[in-house]
Structure formats: structure tokens, C-alpha cells
């Protein structure tokens, strides 16, 4: 079971709700993924279009827990105000906290992130910070009261997979009791499986499913990959080695002569 802020979930896959070819494909992809948590956002609402009202009706149909993000915020102040609007709008104290430092990499501004996280936690929020794999930022966030960390695998939407495995391994080793979710940069089910094999608690992705040729089928593929990776982690992986080690018993090999063995 995945436990985030005292709530338990069966699925270890969190799914974004953006960029799907149609509302229907979003709905079917969420069902196929088996996810119990979907990320959402908030945007300016026009009086005529009322776009958000229809979207909210769709989200309610999904029956998932919603995790609102603060995507696009450039400062702690913007992120704090956005989180407060999201809390009222979505009726949850959970927030996927994003403070973005750079438009090309969409990398988190770790200083702004720590500042906003501390302020929001003091205000009663349960913060899931979108961060880089930086250990010291993680320590500051945990000290501020974050009980979940969400390091990126690679820049959002880049589909590059786990580009800094060493640091991700370090993070996992340093925080054995904090739920760690790989958030952003996952491109393929094998990336997701790899993260889970490393002992990460869950994976959050969006583009890899939404922009796939068949989002519904890809959602199912990610569900299997996440489950397979988790099972493998629980089973205990063998260590890689430099040289071969025969899997078939050597004893009793036909035609075996001792000089073959030297």
C-alpha cells in the first residue's frame, strides 16, 4: 500500500489530466491506469467560456482523489496564493507545490520551493513538493514538514527517464521512511519500472500517456510497469556482476572433461 499523509492507496501510479486528445480519452486512460490520484490545476476563468466548470464535472466523474498543482508559479508568493485558491476550489489541503525557476528546463526553484513549503505547512497544507533530486533541498523540505518528496526524473515533458540515477539512489537511501514519488520526465513504461525497482514509492506522469498514439493502451502499459517494478523491488533484485555465472548446473554436463574447465 502507498500511504501519503495518512491516506492509503492501492495504485502507485499518479496521473496528470492535461494534453489528452479528448475528455473521453482522459476518462478512459484514468480507468485503464487504475490510478487513484489525478493532478489538476487552476487557470483564469473567462465569463463567456466557463471552461473550468465543464472540466470540474469531468473530474468529479473520475472518482479519484485530486492533487492540485501550482504549475507556472515563478515565486513563493505566487505559489502560496495559488495553493490557497486551489485548497478552496478543490476542497483539499494537498498541494503539488511547484515554483519554477526557468522556462526552458521548468526546473524547480529550490529556494522558493522551501520558502513556500514552510509557509503553506504552517497554514495547514499537506505539501507534495516537485523538486530536483538535490539532497540538501530534500533535507530542508523534510525539516519544514514535508512528509512526501517528489523529485523529477528529467525535465517535465522531456521523456528522458531517470537522468541522475546516482542522486536518486542517494535520496532513496537517505529517506527510507519518506514516501518518494518520481514526478516528471518519465517517457516509457520501462522508465517507470526502473524507478519502482529502485524503491521509489510511486510515479507521477502525464505527457507519456496523454501524448501517446493510444493514451488508453499506454495508461494500461504504465500500470503494469509500475506494478512489475514494485513487485521486483519487494522481491529483491540480484546484484549485477562483470563476468558470466552459469545458470544451468555444471555438474553432470555431458562430454565434460576436466580440461574444459581450465
Amino acid at each position: 500500500m502507498l500511504t501519503l499523509y495518512d491516506t492509503s492507496f492501492t495504485s502507485r501510479l499518479l496521473l496528470g489530466t492535461a494534453q489528452y486528445p479528448s475528455p473521453e480519452s482522459l476518462k478512459q486512460a484514468v480507468e485503464a491506469s487504475g490510478t487513484e490520484i489525478v493532478t489538476v490545476s487552476l487557470r483564469r476563468e473567462a465569463a463567456r467560456a466557463r471552461t473550468g466548470q465543464g472540466f470540474w464535472a469531468l473530474i468529479e466523474e473520475l472518482g479519484c482523489r485530486v492533487l492540485p498543482n501550482t504549475a507556472g508559479c515563478r515565486t513563493a508568493k505566487e505559489a502560496i496564493a495559488t495553493a490557497k485558491m486551489a485548497r478552496e476550489l478543490f476542497g483539499t489541503s494537498w498541494v503539488k507545490l511547484e515554483v519554477v525557476a526557468n522556462d526552458d528546463t521548468l526546473q524547480p526553484d529550490l529556494f522558493g520551493l522551501v520558502e513556500a513549503a514552510a509557509a503553506l505547512i504552517a497554514d495547514g497544507f499537506e505539501v507534495l513538493p516537485y523538486m530536483t533530486e538535490d539532497l540538501s533541498a530534500a533535507e530542508h523540505l523534510v525539516a519544514s514538514g514535508c512528509n512526501v518528496l517528489m523529485p523529477w526524473a528529467a525535465p517535465i515533458g522531456s521523456a528522458r527517464g531517470l537522468i541522475n540515477k546516482d542522486a536518486l539512489k542517494t535520496l532513496r537511501a537517505y529517506f527510507p521512511d519518506i514516501p518518494l514519488i518520481i514526478d516528471a520526465g518519465i517517457g516509457t513504461p520501462s522508465h517507470a519500472a526502473e524507478a519502482m525497482e529502485m524503491g521509489y514509492d510511486a510515479v507521477l506522469l502525464n505527457t507519456a500517456v496523454a501524448k501517446a498514439g493510444d493514451p488508453v493502451k499506454m495508461a494500461a502499459a504504465f500500470a503494469k510497469a509500475v506494478e512489475a517494478g514494485r513487485l521486483a523491488f519487494e522481491a529483491g533484485l540480484i546484484e549485477p556482476r562483470d563476468m558470466a555465472s552459469p545458470s544451468t548446473p555444471v555438474a553432470g554436463t555431458p562430454f565434460f572433461k576436466i580440461d574444459h574447465a581450465s
Binding site: G16, V40, S41, R43, E45, G52, I59, P68, A184
Partner: peptide, 10 residues
Amino acid sequence: IEIVAPRQGG
């Protein structure tokens, strides 16, 4: 003034 509503997000 900002008036916002739910929207798709990642």
C-alpha cells in the same frame, strides 16, 4: 483581480 477555475494539470 484574478478569478480562476479548475483546469487540466500535470
